[in-house]
């Protein structure tokens, strides 16, 4: 009985995809991949690079193995790996992803010298006093006064926003943009609940919170509803 092949190459509308079997050993897989790519059809040497997808099913690949496979494919034909898709991830990765996408609620006053840092969204019930810093990988929502520094999307997410009940920050940072507060806040001006975001000119602007629903529709995570 002939064994099913471990490596299959399929052409789809979106380009070439390599299906790598997930039941054989990694060594066998490498060997067969090597063979298959060596013996296959003859191609024009000066043709452009073709990007391919690699699907490995339920096989977990470490970063080194991923690099090895990319290298292997790259060295054979003029193929370049666009991405490696796998159904498996480690618990650490999953936890990181989860923590980056959840909202952390904290009831506290962030005082001068204190730094609060969360990977996902931050919902702070309390104030940020001058000299205090809050940082979040995602958005920052403050149900209180923001008088210190807030840094949203500090891992590079420029779509992140900062919202505060009283917006009197000493500095606002979103992604790699920084905006300093005016030297003097106008006296007696009490605007309630404002938000800060990066506009199309790559500048941080402060606006009414109601502006967000048009600017950042992705903030709405509820699907369906009545």
């Amino acid at each position: 009985m002939k064994k099913l092949q471990n490596v299959m190459i399929k052409g789809t509308k979106s380009g070439l995809t390599l299906y790598l079997d997930d039941t054989c050993s990694y060594e066998d897989l490498k060997k067969e991949l090597n063979e298959k790519l060596s013996v296959a059809y003859r191609v024009n040497e000066d043709r452009q690079l073709i990007s391919v997808k690699v699907k490995v099913g339920n096989r977990y690949l470490t970063e080194e193995q991923k690099a090895e496979i990319k290298e292997l494919i790259r060295h054979k034909k003029n193929l370049v790996v666009e991405e490696i898709e796998t159904n498996v991830m480690t618990i650490e990765e999953a936890e990181r992803l989860k923590s980056e996408s959840e909202i952390v609620t904290i009831a506290k006053i962030i005082r001068s010298g204190q730094v609060l840092d969360v990977p996902g969204d931050l919902l702070l019930i309390g104030d940020v006093n001058p000299g205090g810093t809050v940082m979040a990988g995602g958005n920052i929502f403050i149900m209180g006064a923001l008088k210190g520094i807030a840094h949203a999307g500090y891992l590079g997410n420029k779509q992140a926003i900062i919202a505060a009940f009283v917006m009197k920050p000493s500095q606002l940072r979103i992604g790699d943009c920084i905006n300093r507060a005016p030297d003097q806040y106008p006296e007696g001006e009490t605007r309630e609940m404002e938000c800060a975001y990066i506009d199309e000119n790559n500048q941080i602007v402060v606006d009414r919170i109601q502006a967000l629903m048009h600017l950042r529709p992705e903030l709405t995570r509820l699907e369906g509803g009545r």
Binding site: R111, S112, Q114, P130, G131, G132
Partner: peptide
Amino acid sequence: RDADRIIGL
């Protein structure tokens, strides 16, 4: 400002 820092500590 310094009182705030101390309270935090």
